[in-house]
Simulated assay, not measured.
Amino acid sequence: MMKKIGITGQNGFVGSHLYNTLGLQPEKFERIDFKRDFFEDPEKLDAFVKQCDVIVHLAAMNRHPDAEIIFSNNIDLVKKLTESLERTESKAHVLFSSSSQEEKDNLYGKSKKEGREILADWAKKSGGKFTGMVIPNVFGPFGKPNYNSFVATFCYKLTHGENPVIDNDGEVKLIYVAELVQEIIAQIEVSETKEMYEIPHTSINKVSEVLAKLENYKKLYFDNGEIPELNSGFDLNLFNTFRCYFDVKNHYPVKFTQHTDPRGAFVEVIRLGIGGQCSFSTTVPGITRGNHFHTRKIERFAVIKGKALIQLRKIDSDEVLNFELDGNEPAYVDMPIWYTHNIKNIGEEELYTIFWINEPFNPEDSDTYFVEV
């Protein structure tokens, strides 16, 4: 049965990942759009709530110089949602994102704990369903530096000419945002009341260990285009996170170093610490390949002959990035995850392109979603 799902904070870090991932299964989930101003207009908020079978309440303030403002803002949002649920006599399944900071002596954690308790009380009185998710530290692509995660801050600084500084080198329990999204979807599908559900972390790392990995990614990949050795799922997730903080518009295309002699030229296309699949294509003039995106794969397009237009667009953005490559000056563009991409022959001769991807194609788990750039 199709479920209609609304996400408060759908444009935020976790919200956007959840919204986009639900969009990959249109046969199971219908997304009900939410806008921030709904909280300021009871009629709009009620209209939103009435449409939803499931509401994932993610909207919250994480940081502010005045902790009292964080507390009052977060409690106010919960109360407004609860009042709308009561006015509309909703029986929706409400999922609430709390934090592992619940038990710490700070106003952010207190706001999360009290918010969870308010919604749990609503569910008891109304007969609705409620899942209070206590979430560990989350990292992943497109988080805001100096706001969502220390990982986001480190990635941004390393790719923008700044030096990260460790304030407290403790051990941190982490979960990758895509793993968290799958946990949320699993709770939506189970559809049971759990007043307090502690979502398990998927890794424990010292802050200094995370920074060392990211500094290695900068040295090998950002500076020299080499794919580093990735020994675990955490390493792959951290690397894909790091890649999403590049200034893509100005970083690509990256020109190869050509070694020429009387015989011709030699070009190293990719140096890597992991395997994968390498292939090449020829494309006749005027033809476009691709128009798809990946959520986990690492992919490189290298043009070695002919003229090509490579286009990228983040799937929740309208901005299209255009890169023209010419085989006379061989170059490559790497595809960030969640960016739909294509390549078109814009020349008058055949286009020769080498493709490398970090895992062999598996038709049963292709991680390939077709969307026009």
Rank of each mutant, 00 (worst) to 15 (best):
L77C: 06
E350C: 06
G161V: 01
E364G: 07
E117R: 09
G140I: 03
I55T: 02
E268P: 12
N146T: 07
I7F: 05
Y352L: 09
F234I: 04
K218W: 13
V78R: 04
P330G: 08
Y176V: 03
S16R: 12
L22A: 04
K314L: 15
G275W: 03
N291C: 07
F139I: 05
L174S: 07
D167N: 14
N62A: 11
A120K: 07
R271K: 15
V207L: 13
A186N: 15
H57T: 01
V248S: 00
L321N: 08
M2S: 12
K91Q: 15
F239Q: 12
F256K: 06
L81N: 01
S84V: 05
K28P: 01
L77P: 01
E117F: 00
F370M: 13
E27Y: 06
G347N: 13
I32F: 09
I357D: 13
P136T: 04
I346H: 10
G286P: 04
L119D: 02
E43P: 04
K194W: 01
S232I: 07
G127W: 14
P253S: 06
N11I: 03
T88R: 12
L272Y: 10
S191A: 14
K110R: 09
T82C: 15
K104D: 14
V190N: 13
F29K: 00
V269A: 06
T282N: 07
I5Y: 04
E195R: 09
K173S: 14
N205G: 06
D33R: 13
F154V: 02
E329D: 13
V177R: 00
T295S: 06
K80I: 11
G264P: 03
P145V: 03
I357L: 13
S98M: 10
P253L: 00
E226C: 12
E171N: 12
K124D: 09
F39Q: 07
L272A: 15
N20K: 14
F239R: 05
P164Y: 02
D326V: 10
V78Q: 01
T82S: 15
H160C: 09
D316S: 09
I304N: 00
V303D: 00
A123H: 05
F246E: 02
D326K: 06
L211K: 10
E162Y: 08
N342I: 14
F139W: 04
Q101N: 10
K219S: 14
